[in-house]
């Protein structure tokens, strides 16, 4: 059962993310990204991380994709994007470097010296467990993250909302309007 679920989710995620990076249309790309995010939350549920699965749906598909969708108002999203192709050598190099990077990060796990710093409790649910660790061991990072989100919100409002009623470009015809 777990095997079927894993492979179904994995193939669906890879397919939708391939659409994201290869599609010519921004709207198709964004829809595929949203579906990929929802499918990733399925993987989180499979990994007994219910809290993160819910957060993934709420934050990524609810907030991030909605933010992108609203930002589409400002861009010409209906027409296809024209892009200059880059060389194939860079692609091969990036493949090798990403494999190398992941190996660098994951090889230390094969050591036996890895032990749990904050072990899970079997008698309580995942959300409760996450809450206990988050509000005791990770309280300061949590508060800093809250301040960071506030700063990001203010920055986003200031930059996107600046002079919304006026044209900022350097096109002469638009300025004379």
């Amino acid at each position: 059962m777990e095997v079927i679920a894993f492979y179904t989710f994995a193939i669906a995620i890879i397919a939708s993310f391939l659409i994201v990076v290869t599609s010519k249309n921004v709207l198709y790309s964004m829809s595929a990204l949203a579906s990929g995010m929802v499918l990733i939350s399925g993987l989180f549920f499979l990994l007994n991380a219910e809290f993160l699965g819910v957060v993934q749906i709420i934050v990524y598909t609810g907030a991030v994709i909605a933010l992108y969708a609203f930002a589409m108002i400002f861009f010409d999203s209906a027409k296809d994007v024209k892009e200059s192709r880059r060389s194939r050598a860079i692609f091969l190099l990036s493949t090798f470097s990403s494999i190398l990077l992941v190996l660098l990060m994951t090889i230390p796990m094969s050591s036996d010296a890895v032990s749990a710093l904050y072990p899970m409790h079997q008698d309580v649910g995942n959300a409760q467990d996450v809450g206990m660790v988050l509000f005791t061991k990770y309280l300061i990072p949590f508060e800093v993250a809250a301040v960071m989100l506030l700063v990001a919100m203010v920055g986003g409002i200031v930059m996107a909302g600046k002079k919304m009623d006026r044209y900022l470009g350097n096109d002469k015809e638009e300025i004379s309007k």
Partner: peptide, 25 residues
């Protein structure tokens, strides 16, 4: 069976959200 990974994933989600807000601005 360690919660640290989930904590880091949680903070990565927070960072991604603020990155999107600033970047889109």
């Amino acid at each position: 069976e360690d919660l640290t990974g989930q904590m880091f994933a949680f903070f990565i989600i927070a960072i991604a959200a603020s990155e999107v807000a600033i970047g889109l601005g």
